[in-house]
Simulated scan of single mutants.
Amino acid sequence: MNIYVGNLPWGVTEEALKTLFSEYGTVDTARVITDRNSGRSKGFGFVEMSNDSDAQEAIEALNGKEMDGRALRVNEARPTADNDSRRRRY
C-alpha cells in the first residue's frame, strides 16, 4: 500500500520517515518529496508498505501524531491521474 504523509517537519529525512513507519511493519520505500530547484522538502512524502494490514495500522496510529511540533496527516495515497491538469505539456 502506498501511504501519503503530509505536514512533515521541514528537516525530516527519508531514514527518519522509514524508522517511524517500521514500528508497524516492513517498509519497502520511504520518500520525502523535495523541490527540484532548491532541494528543500515540500513538507510531504510517501511510504510504501507491502502488507496492507500493517499499512492500515500505521495510518490509524500515525494520523494526527505530532512530529517535531507538527501534526502529521497520514492516509492512503490516491493514484495519480494520467491526464493531470497541473502538468503543462509543451
Rank of each mutant, 00 (worst) to 15 (best):
D54R: 06
V47R: 00
K18S: 09
N2I: 02
V32L: 04
V27F: 03
Q56V: 09
V32D: 00
F44S: 08
A81Y: 08
K65H: 10
G25Y: 04
I3S: 04
G25R: 06
K65E: 09
G25W: 06
V47E: 03
V47N: 07
R40M: 12
K18V: 02
F46V: 04
N63H: 12
I59Q: 01
E76H: 10
W10P: 13
L17K: 00
G45C: 06
P79M: 11
R78V: 14
E66N: 14
A58T: 03
I3L: 03
R86M: 12
G43F: 04
M1Q: 13
A30C: 04
D35A: 09
A58D: 00
E57I: 09
S22Q: 11
L20T: 07
V12G: 07
L72H: 01
E76A: 13
R89I: 09
A55P: 07
V32M: 01
D54I: 04
Y24S: 01
K42C: 11
D68I: 03
D28F: 00
D52H: 13
Q56E: 15
R78F: 08
E66L: 11
T26H: 10
A55F: 06
S22V: 08
N75L: 09
R87E: 11
A16E: 15
N37W: 11
T34C: 13
V47G: 03
A81P: 07
T29K: 15
E57L: 11
D84W: 13
T26S: 12
V5M: 02
K18A: 10
R89C: 06
G25V: 05
T80A: 15
G11E: 14
T29S: 13
S53E: 14
R36K: 12
G45W: 01
E60Y: 08
A71M: 09
N7F: 03
A16S: 14
S85K: 15
A71W: 00
R31G: 00
M1Y: 11
V12Q: 08
F21M: 04
N75G: 07
R89A: 08
R88T: 15
G11L: 13
D84Y: 10
G43H: 05
L20R: 05
T19P: 01
L20A: 10
N83P: 10
R89N: 12
K18C: 07
V12C: 09
S85I: 14
D82N: 14
